[in-house]
Design a protein around this nucleic acid. Structure first.
Length: 157
DNA sequence: GCCAACGTTGGC
DNA sequence: GCCAACGTTGGC
């Protein structure tokens, strides 16, 4: 089991949206490093910190789990989509993603400032300036601590 | 709205 | 294959 942090702009897709829908295909990722992590490293059952970026304040809103892997992002085939990729075809998809399931909303939203204030989290990618990667690996210890800060049981116990 | 950091593109 | 120009991300 591995742990991840995944960013979403809440104006576009928030944890509340995932809670309402319960499941979502994580579409629109157009960065090769993020794609490779989802395609090659994520496994069903992995735990995800759902991070709100471009928000005031930015921070971790809750938890999701990886429900399915190896999915072709449908938006790459849709000419109407802003994520359309003319070089991709159903026979030869370029953008592989995962399906997430809603797990939990933190009782306490954990803002970025608070993550930065914890010396234990100094290795956490998201606190570093310019860490734009939208899918980031998180250590088990960091995941557990962040769940505690959010006053969420997670499943890390 | 600013701008630093980073990724991608394309001319050569 | 280098690298300048450009576009995007995302905190502030």
């Amino acid at each position: 089991m591995q742990y991840w942090l995944m960013k979403s702009e809440p104006d576009v897709y928030s944890l509340a949206d995932l809670e309402r829908e319960q499941h979502t295909i994580w579409d629109g990722v157009r960065n090769y490093q993020a794609r490779n992590l989802m395609r090659d490293s994520m496994q069903v059952g992995d735990q995800v910190l759902f991070y709100h970026s471009n928000a005031r304040p930015p921070g971790v809103a809750g938890l999701a789990t990886v429900a399915q892997t190896g999915l072709a992002d449908p938006s790459q085939f849709d000419p109407q989509s802003p994520y359309f990729d003319p070089k991709a075809s159903p026979d030869n998809p370029r953008w592989i993603t995962v399906k997430l399931s809603y797990q939990d909303r933190f009782k306490r939203f954990v803002p970025l400032d608070e993550l930065k204030a914890h010396p234990e989290l100094s290795e956490l990618m998201v606190i570093r300036r310019g860490a734009r990667l939208s899918v980031q690996p998180v250590s088990a210890a960091d995941f557990k601590l962040i769940c505690q800060l959010g006053n969420s049981p997670g499943t890390g116990s």
